[in-house]
């Protein structure tokens, strides 16, 4: 995951890029076999462990998902955390500190 959280005025802008194939389960490989569905289903975000934006995703989110979201109430140095879970049981969490934008 690549993450950045910038405080601009009283709003913090958080940008996230996740490396993930986001396979729909409808695509075929070079030999004509279906590539099994493999996609992120849940994404949770927190500010200093308090839940912020929570997402449920389907196969319609693009490969290597990109997300920008915004929040009020964060200060420089606060911790923003993002966790994702996919349909095959894989998961990842990453933290980033809020910086002055």
């Amino acid at each position: 995951m690549k993450m950045r959280a910038k405080l601009k005025g009283d709003v913090t802008e958080v940008k996230v890029i996740i490396s993930h194939p986001m396979e729909t389960g409808r695509k075929k490989d070079d030999f004509g076999a279906l590539i099994p569905a493999h996609f992120i289903q849940l994404v949770t975000t927190t500010l200093n462990d308090k839940p912020l934006l929570e997402m449920q995703w389907g196969t319609g989110i693009s490969k290597n998902p990109y997300l920008t979201f915004y929040l009020k109430g964060a200060k420089v140095g606060d911790t923003i955390s993002v966790t994702w879970h996919d349909n095959l049981g894989a998961t990842a969490t990453q933290d980033v500190a809020v910086i002055q934008g």
Binding site: L47, L52, I61, L67, T68, L71, K72, G73
Partner: peptide, 9 residues
């Protein structure tokens, strides 16, 4: 908790 209803994806 302060997340604004605005997203880019």
């Amino acid at each position: 908790n302060g997340a604004l209803p605005q997203i880019v994806t």
